[in-house]
Design a protein around this nucleic acid. Sequence first.
DNA 1: TGTGTGATTGTTATT
DNA 2: AATAACAATCACACA
Length: 155
Amino acid sequence: MAKKASKSRKSSSASASAENPTTGKIALKIKSTGKKMKKVMKQSRPNSGNKSKTTPKKKAAKIDAKKPKKPPTAFFYFLEDFRKEFQEKNPDVKSMRDIGKACGEKWKTMTYEEKVQYYDIATEKRADFDKSIAAYNKKKESGEDQESEDSAFDE
DNA sequence: TGTGTGATTGTTATT
DNA sequence: AATAACAATCACACA
């Protein structure tokens, strides 16, 4: 016990919401970065011209059995939950592209306490993911090119 | 018939 | 430090 200052990334992501001292006054100390995060991601179409047998979503989607894929972020977890409700409320909506927009919009309106729930999940996921990375790194260190390419796609 | 794209934000990895 | 790309999902469009 006595594990107060966890330091490091684990730093209790849910502590903010868990701590609800005083009356309903929540000390929401969201560090206002102030800087506008402009997304300058060049979303070109790298897939243009890349044909894979399976359906490689969009870009790369490299099939690295050794490299653990990125776990869904808190936003994605929220999406799963939001998606269900959204479909019920908006049966007319066909695709999730619209949902994604709605989610993103609502996500920003959500308070830290609400988001923290999903953040907590993502945090746990990352913990597991961290192990995968460690194993991956370790394995890589042990035998970098040791993969035998099991079955080189033979259809 | 089959597969790629589209959109959301967050996280991770790489440089 | 900052950038790049990817993480899931589902319906539609094109060849």
